[in-house]
Design a binder for these strands. Sequence first.
DNA 1: GTATAGAGGATTGTTGAACGATTCGGCAAT
DNA 2: ATTGCCGAATCGTTCAACAATCCTCTATAC
Lengths: 266, 266
Amino acid sequence: MFFAVGFTSAMSDDVLDELAADRNLLSRTSTAERVADILRSRIIEGAFRPGARLPEEEIGAALGVSRNTLREAFRLLTHERLLAHRLNRGMFVRVLTVEDLEDIYRVRSLVQCAVLRALGEPPYPLAALESAVTAGRGASSEARWRDLGTANMRFHQAMVELAGSPRTDALMRGVLAELRLVFHVMDDPRRFHEPYLVRNEEILRTLQQGEAAEAERLLAAYLDDSRSQLAGAYATTDVPRARDGSTVYGSAVHGRTAGERTADGR
Amino acid sequence: MFFAVGFTSAMSDDVLDELAADRNLLSRTSTAERVADILRSRIIEGAFRPGARLPEEEIGAALGVSRNTLREAFRLLTHERLLAHRLNRGMFVRVLTVEDLEDIYRVRSLVQCAVLRALGEPPYPLAALESAVTAGRGASSEARWRDLGTANMRFHQAMVELAGSPRTDALMRGVLAELRLVFHVMDDPRRFHEPYLVRNEEILRTLQQGEAAEAERLLAAYLDDSRSQLAGAYATTDVPRARDGSTVYGSAVHGRTAGERTADGR
DNA sequence: GTATAGAGGATTGTTGAACGATTCGGCAAT
DNA sequence: ATTGCCGAATCGTTCAACAATCCTCTATAC
């Protein structure tokens, strides 16, 4: 029942809609979120190494926030799978196992290929992909290897965005953030990131020509190579097989909803 | 550097591994998680209607936990997209928009079809699917419509588990949990859930015969029908278009990492 | 010597209270 | 009907405290 339909308004509906769209821009963020933002970038840029412990007292004091707020920030990052929480032991930067690595690429392969396959008729809106490639070229020519890695990941993020699905975007964002944890075990970021730039360009070119099916093949090969290269690097590193009881929240990993017994055991 | 390699152990590694697998079972859960478990089931079973506000003081008192702990539980559920958080206004049971509905089915179609297509050679391990169908038949014959809905969702969850990817499982778990919020707008659960039981059976039968491609076609049609039926039900209901500034955390939705400006806006 | 058992210290889990900040609703003034 | 203002209610955040738990180190027994 909406009675306020024919009310007189000085503003047109169009203008109001535009304002409503800007709404999220002015939503202030809570302290916990800002703390999470800071910690997230520190983790991603490698200031906190995988496996490092983040003591509440220490970090809270350094950032000037209370333990409670810090814990809220920790929760946020735990759900992004950047931190792992062990009961009564604290927060740790996650250490990805080879299994995690394999799974990340399994997801990427599944999702990204599906996105390309679901593309409609060309031409496709590839602006974001192009800008990512351009950024990658710039970073590469100036030897900013970390930025090159970022650009590569933005390329794939943009590719997923072609599906126009916020939830898929969020999934991808999370998976790619996790992947950054893996990158820290790579000793030579240049040798790892540079070859994939040209392959991204190749995929982009193929998409520009409207050959989505071929692009999908290229992508599958890309992912497979990247995965095996990382897995190889992992084999030479002594990454302790995390048989620990660390907790990482998936969307609803702690499942077991009353009346719905997920017989997974994982 | 791991020196403790050749240490003498009375136990065999095999046994130790088995025990390690049981570890999560006995890992006590924190209070916040248990609180989240309780609230989650209340939401899913509809005790808390979509749009309802959950005041901290009130609920905290009812459950006998402090506000701080309750807030942690709230955050867990926010990340599962069951609750939405509005700054300085509190927690609300999420109200899904038609856009959310469309997106959920976009994800399902993308992921589930990809899973079926990625299946290897038959026969497939379909035990979980079969048990879900059996449970559905039981619930249907006893007119337990809510359980029937649960069984249907377990069927699709099990289907995704064929991919063997924990992250994909988690994604699906979250998306299906969201779907339950939609179901609450359906006035006649029977008419909605019952037809899909036989279609699940049909898909299962096709998979048992090893015809994954055909199963994929059936699934796509299934999802499309289900989506449009729900969308239709939405059209008749006055669901306020949530153009609000409510915050819902995806895997890392609040993106905008320092040095990595995601120019998405959504 | 090796291994078990126990004590002590450090850190986390949780609570309770407090205070400023923000939102919402109502009432008066224009 | 719109605007401006005020008060109540609730949230955001901090602080301090205590119990519970884990880790390390030492002492003891074999």
